[in-house]
């Protein structure tokens, strides 16, 4: 059941903390994800962001799309920087040098920044238990530098460094499951989200903000440029990923899993893969193999969610 269908777009807060004039490609659902995350967080927020598409498109000097204090970081550093901000400001509040106030300390990065190069810094920050949120915008490759594979690129996707051809079926390793790596840190809140499900996404970010301690939110962010789809189909493909159970929407509160959306009709992965240029080369057999991976992974989440 879709428990968010009662929400109305019209009732969503009209104020924007991430402004137009940003330079993302047409139809970039990663930029939409940033916009929605910032709606949910509000102005009392400090963001540290790793380089990547979202950093580049929002901060070409001397301009900025941000309406909150925002710190540009080297590729691997956002979790380290934001955990330092949290500790520093908490100490200053304790000493009365800053007025005590609830502030969202938020680290953000792409899938490359999160699952590859920034993994160590992120793991350290989660383990230390800072009162922070880390948001990963997962567009399933290093898009900003020209669609190179990351450890979050799905099995079978063609990228410039995992090109499909006579000798290769594209990415031949399985996508790293960052949400479950975050869960393994025993932090109080982990969630997956997608900008095609805006209410679910904003609710989860709010819950992450209300949770004392470290929270991790992993957002599937459709990238028309890298996925080789039409810009107007960006929202549709996020929906297909969720309805095919390729990217289940769930949250894990104090270790307890719960699916926040169960598709009314689970669609075959073929319907999700088809039409995406990055999967165009796949044979029927390879698609079947992907379907088998998806079925197994989804059943695991269903089982964890059904546990009482």
């Amino acid at each position: 059941m879709d428990r968010f269908s009662v929400f109305s777009a019209r009732l969503v807060d009209k104020s924007e903390n991430f402004t137009s004039g940003h330079r993302a490609c047409q139809g970039c659902a990663e930029a939409l994800a940033v916009r929605l995350v910032m709606k949910a967080l509000g102005r009392d927020t400090i963001v540290a962001m790793s380089t990547g598409c979202m950093e580049i498109i929002s901060s070409p000097l001397p301009l900025t799309s941000w309406k909150v204090p925002w710190i540009h970081n080297a590729f691997e550093n956002s979790a380290a920087v934001i955990s330092g901000c949290e500790s520093g400001m908490k100490a200053m509040m304790r000493k009365g040098k800053l007025p005590a106030k609830k502030i969202n300390f938020v680290g953000m990065g792409g899938d490359g920044a999160t699952a590859d190069i920034g993994m160590g810094a992120l793991s350290g920050a989660l383990e230390r238990g800072h009162d922070m949120i880390y948001v990963c915008y997962d567009n399933e490759a290093y898009m900003n530098t020209g669609i190179q594979r990351s450890s979050s690129t799905p099995f079978g996707a063609s990228t410039t460094t995992s090109p499909a051809g006579k000798a290769s079926m594209g990415q031949h390793t399985r996508k790293k499951n960052m949400a479950q790596i975050a869960v393994a840190h025993n932090i109080p809140y982990v969630a997956t989200a997608c900008s095609s499900f805006p209410f679910d996404l904003m609710e989860k970010v709010k819950r992450a903000s209300e949770t004392p301690g470290a929270a991790y939110v992993h957002i599937l962010s459709v990238c028309p440029t890298g996925w080789r789809i039409q810009p107007h189909d960006a929202i549709k493909y996020g929906r297909l990923a969720v309805d095919a159970c390729v990217f289940p929407l769930y949250e894990v509160v104090n270790g307890k899993y719960s699916l926040t959306y169960r598709p009314q009709r689970i669609i075959p992965v073929k319907e999700y893969l088809g039409g995406q240029g990055r999967f165009r080369h796949l044979t029927e057999k390879q698609v079947e193999q992907i379907q088998a991976f998806v079925d197994t992974d989804y059943q695991k989440i269903v089982k964890l969610s059904d546990e009482v």
């Binding site: 402004t19 137009s20 004039g21 940003h22 330079r23 929002s58 301009l63």
Partner: peptide
């Protein structure tokens, strides 16, 4: 950058 949301001058 001291002015928030200044990207709006880029059309």
């Amino acid at each position: 950058v001291t002015e928030v949301g200044s990207a709006r001058q880029y059309h």
